[in-house]
Design a protein around this nucleic acid. Structure first.
Length: 307
RNA sequence: GGUCGAGUAGCUCAGUCGGCAGAGCACACGCCUGAAAAGCGUGGGGUCACCGGAUCGACGCCGGUCUCGACCA
């Protein structure tokens, strides 16, 4: 028998993805959730990442949570490995994967056949030094020569992307652009994807409420505890953590930090929307207040018709 | 009641000698294959509190009005 087509529930932060996924799983004992979230992979970062509760996690199997410690770095490729393993384990049990996805790139690394070029730290170090001395434009100019196609796809001022493309092109002997069409193409894939879409003002309100709820739930203590030890470069940029770390270092008041968390989370949600709405494979469900009530019937019929 | 200060983009504020109205943030739109809750770009916004005056020309100068703040009574 062929494994059931995985379902994907995606949407911006605070859109209610997890609630919808729990409701769906509550009706199907063979559903297992696979989370695609760049920050919920870190242990000890629970409140600020809105990680599913222990109760939810014991009621329904969750995968790809708490994969590494907050002191460890973690990247897309690590996620792709973990998610593929989870998916094949689930299929082995003849269960069905339901992705709960907020990080678009992480999800794409699973749904789309992507070839990740690899890393070359020595070359990278060298480029990081050069960019400080010569400036981004010089490196971009070099990329134009070595891999014009890649150079054309990024802003000449985007240091991070320019360095990455050069790292790969110089060190691998292959052009960065030869590793695939990039994320701008959307081939048919064996996943049924559903997006939760909110009117922006409503979502903004939910975000503000949720941030304040996180503070009430003890976010400041969680971050303070974290600040006592090592926090990796990738983990420390999590919304809510970054701002509080800065506040502990003496930047501004707690109130200002909270306000900044709200604003930046709102901006993040918009960025998520913009990333997701390009993908024509996603079927959108409009939410006007109750995500479960709006989305469950749609997902339920998708579950039935594709099983 | 009096004196002084302030009033310019949604917010905080620049604006030199009277000569096309500015910045940061916010907001909108877009890009990005090993940091993606990251990184990068684009641009829409103005009755310069209001009324009048002098001037070729006023956000700016003159007179008055309103609002806010501080101080004095």
């Amino acid at each position: 028998m062929i494994a059931a087509t995985p379902l994907v529930i995606l949407g911006p932060t605070a859109s209610g993805k997890s609630d919808v996924a729990m409701a769906l799983a509550g009706r199907h004992p063979n559903a297992e959730l696979v989370v695609a979230d760049a920050m919920q992979v870190y242990r000890r970062m629970d409140i600020g990442t809105a990680k599913p509760s222990i109760a939810d996690r014991s009621a329904v199997p969750h995968h790809c949570l708490d994969l590494v410690d907050a002191a460890d770095e973690f990247t897309v490729t690590d996620y792709a490995v973990a998610a593929h393993r989870a998916m094949s384990d689930i299929a082995g049990r003849r269960h069905r994967s339901v992705f709960v996805a907020g990080t678009g790139l992480y999800l794409r690394s699973v749904t789309d056949p992507m070839e990740m070029p690899g890393r070359w730290p020595e070359v990278r170090r060298e480029l990081d030094q050069r960019i400080a001395v010569e400036g981004v434009e010089a490196l971009h100019a070099q990329l134009v020569v070595l891999d014009p196609a890649a150079a054309a796809k990024m802003e000449p001022t985007n240091g991070r992307r320019v360095v990455r493309a050069l790292e790969v092109t110089i060190a691998s002997g292959r052009k960065f652009s030869s590793f695939g069409p990039g994320i701008g193409t959307f081939p048919p894939v064996p996943f049924l994807q559903f997006g939760l879409r909110w009117p922006r003002p409503l979502l903004a309100e939910r975000i503000a409420r949720r941030v304040h709820a996180m503070i009430s739930a003890g976010l400041v203590d969680e971050v303070a505890e974290l600040a006592r030890g090592q926090v990796s470069r990738t983990a420390r940029q999590a919304l809510g953590y970054k701002e509080l770390f800065a506040q502990f270092d003496g930047v501004g008041s707690l109130e200002a930090a909270i306000e900044s968390i709200v604003t930046r989370t709102r901006q993040f949600a918009v960025r998520q929307e913009r990333w997701l709405r390009r993908d024509p494979r996603i079927r959108w469900i409009d939410i006007d207040g109750d995500p479960v009530a709006s989305a469950l019937p749609v997902l339920e019929s998708a579950w039935q018709s594709s099983n």
